[in-house]
Design a binder for these strands. Structure first.
Lengths: 337, 337
DNA sequence: TTGTAGGCGTTATCAT
DNA sequence: ATGATAACGCCTACAA
C-alpha cells in the first residue's frame, strides 16, 4: 500500500494524495475528504524512509547518552519527551542512542547520524563530540545541544554546580557548623568533566564567606559514588579530624546514605552530632531515616529545556550560541541539625 | 556524497560500490580495496533511509515499553543491547519506543512500525497488542516478542512468578514460620497483568505443601508499590493478626522496605520477631540494614533472551511459537530469621 | 568481474 | 485545483 494505491482508490493522482498528507498547496475540500476517507479506510501510513530520502533530512531529534539506565538519564529523557508532546513537535521522534561509554560507538553514532542525515538536531548528555565533529555538524546544518557539557561555540544546558554546592555549604555554616567535610568525585575524569571541581569551588566559596579556612584534610575523593565508598570516606574523614561536625557529600545521595550508615555503626547521631547533606535528591532520600537534606538537580526540566533548544535550533530560530545554566535547589529535610 | 560520487572517485560504477558496501556478489580484491580506500578517505556512510526504502525493510529491532525510566525497564534494554553486540547483529539498531502508558500512542507506534516497515521484529515490554494488530504483523512478516506478557500464538518471555513466590514462601515455611503475610499488587489491572495473582498462587502452593491453611486475612493488596504503602499494609496485616511472624512482600523491595521501616517504628525486630522477603532485588536491597532477602528477577537476561528470539524470528529461524519461562532466584540476606 | 537500467515510495517543480 | 515528470540514494536483476 503506497500513495499510488491510495490515489487509484480515490480516483486522483499520487501528487494529490501527497498534498493531502502534508497539508500543502491547494486542494479542494471535497477531494481532501475523499482522499482522507480512503486513507482511513485502508489504515494507510506513508513510509518514513521514503519521506526522509525525498526531504533529505531526518525528521527526528537524536538523544545520545552513555547509557539509558541511570535515574538521572532516564529522568532527563522523560523531560525531553514530555516537552515534545507539550510542543506538539517531534512527537515520538526522539531517538535514543547509547554510546555504552565507548569512544568507538560514540564516533560511529555521530557519523551515522550525520551522514545518514538521520536527525534534525542532536542532544548529547555526558558525551562530548570532538572539534572535527562539531565542525562537520555545523557544516551540515545539524545543531548540537550539550547537556551537562560545554564547548566553545556549542549550545549547552548545564547545572550550576558551583551554586548548588554553595547553597548546601552555606546552609551548614549558617547553622553554626564549622568543621565541614567534603566528599566529592574524582577530578580530571573525562566522563564526569568539571563537576566535582565545580562543587568544590562552591564549597570553598561558602567557607570563605563564613570566614572558615579551607582545610585540604577535610576533602575526600570518591570513584564510584557508591554506598560503600560513602562509608569508607566518612571513616577516613573522621580519622583525620575528630571534631568533624558536618559532611557535605557532593558525590551524591547514595554516597551520603553510606555516610549516615557508617555514622550509625559508629554510634554517632545524625543530625545530633554530625549533619549531612547529599546531592541529587533521589527517590530514596525522602524515605530514609533521617530523611536526607540534599541538593535537587532540576533534571527533568533540563531535559525539557534541551529539547526546546534542539527544536528551536533545528528550525533555525536559535541565532547565537546559547549556554543555559540551571540552578539547583536545596531540599531541607532532617539530616541537618 | 552518495555511492555515485564514491564510484566516480574510485573509477568504478555505483553498482560496484554497493557490492563492496554489502559484501555481496563477486568483486576483485583490488577493486574492493580501492573502493574501500575512497570510502574511508571521504568518511562515507550510506544513507539508511535509502537502503531501507530499497530493501523494503526496517533493519532494526523495535523495543516498545510503557516508558524508559524504570530500573526494571532500563535493565531489560541493557540486556537486549548487550546481546546485540554479543551476537554482532543489529548493533546499535535497537530502537526504543515509549507508549507513555496510553493506548493511543501504543496504536500509533505499532502502526507506524508496521506500515513504515521500520523494524524487522518488535519486542514489547508490559505492552500488549490487540488481536487485529497481531494478525496484521503476522501478515506483514514482522515477528512480535512479548516480554512479561502472553498471548496465544505470540512468542513470549516471561518470569515464572509462581515459582519465584513459591521459593520465597517455602524458604519461610522451611524456617518454621507459620503466620506468613502476603503483600501483593492489585489483581485485574491491565498494565500489570496476571503477575500479582501468579505470585499469590506460588505463595498458596508453598503454604499447602507445608500444611498451612491459606488465610485471606493475611493477604494485603497494594496499588502503587510504594514505600508508604508498604508501611500501611504492614500495619493492617498486624492489626488483623498479632501473631504474624513473617511477611512475603510480593509487591517489590521498595514496599518491603516500607514494611521494615514500619516494624522499626513499632519496635518490632526484623528479623528477630518478623521475617521479611521482598521481590525484585533492587540495588538498595543489599545496602539497607538489615539487608533484604528477596527474589531476583533475571531482568537483564530476559532482555537478552528476548533480543535473541527477535533476531531469530526476524531471520526466519523461529518456527513454532516459543514461550520462554525464566525462573527467578531467591537471594538470601539478613531479613529472614 | 563489472556495468546498465529500473524500481523502491515519497516530495517538489512545473505545466495545465 | 490537479496532474505529469523528475529527483532523492540505494539495491538488484540481467546483460556484457
Amino acid at each position: 500500500m503506497n500513495i499510488r494505491d491510495i490515489a487509484r482508490l480515490a480516483g486522483v493522482t499520487h501528487t494529490t494524495v501527497s498534498r493531502v498528507l502534508n497539508n500543502k498547496g491547494y486542494i479542494s475540500e471535497e477531494t481532501k475528504r475523499k482522499v482522507l476517507r480512503v486513507i482511513k479506510a485502508n489504515d494507510f501510513y506513508p513510509s518514513e524512509a521514503a519521506r526522509r530520502i525525498s526531504l533529505g533530512m531526518g525528521e527526528e531529534i537524536a538523544f545520545i547518552s552513555t547509557k539509558y539506565a541511570s535515574q538521572f538519564i532516564s529522568r532527563v529523557i522523560e523531560g525531553a519527551e514530555d516537552k515534545s508532546y507539550g510542543m506538539g513537535k517531534y512527537e515520538n521522534k526522539l531517538t535514543l542512542y547509547s554510546t555504552r561509554g565507548t569512544q568507538d560507538l560514540k564516533k560511529e553514532i555521530l557519523m551515522r547520524i550525520l551522514h545518514g542525515k538521520l536527525a534534525d538536531a542532536v542532544i548529547m548528555l555526558f558525551v562530548e563530540p570532538d572539534r572535527a565533529t562539531v565542525l562537520a555538524y555545523k557544516k551540515a546544518g545539524i545543531p548540537i545541544i550539550l547537556l551537562e557539557g560545554k564547548m566553545k561555540g556549542v549550545h549547552s544546558v548545564t547545572v550550576d554546580n558551583i551554586s548548588g554546592a554553595y547553597e548546601a555549604t552555606s546552609f551548614l555554616t549558617g547553622k553554626g557548623l564549622k568543621k565541614i567535610g567534603l566528599i566529592r568525585g574524582e577530578t580530571g575524569v573525562e566522563e564526569v568533566g568539571p563537576t566535582p571541581m565545580d562543587r568544590e569551588k562552591g564549597y570553598k566559596k561558602a567557607l570563605l564567606e563564613a570566614g572558615i579556612a579551607f582545610d585540604r584534610n577535610l576533602v575526600e575523593e570518591v570513584k564510584s559514588y557508591s554506598f560503600e565508598e560513602g562509608k569508607l570516606a566518612f571513616g577516613k574523614l573522621l580519622s583525620r579530624d575528630k571534631a568533624l561536625d558536618a559532611v557535605f557529600c557532593a558525590a551524591g545521595d547514595i554516597c551520603a546514605m553510606g555516610v549516615i550508615e557508617q555514622a550509625r555503626e559508629l554510634k554517632i547521631k545524625v543530625p545530633g552530632e554530625i549533619s549531612v547533606i547529599g546531592f541529587d535528591n533521589i527517590i530514596m532520600s525522602s524515605q530514609v531515616k533521617p530523611a536526607l537534606t540534599t541538593v535537587r538537580q532540576p533534571v527533568y526540566e533540563m531535559g525539557g529545556r534541551a529539547f526546546e533548544m534542539a527544536v528551536d535550533a533545528a528550525e533555525g530560530r536559535l541565532g547565537n550560541v546559547v549556554n543555559l545554566l540551571v540552578k539547583p535547589q536545596l531540599i531541607v529535610r532532617e539530616s541537618v541539625k
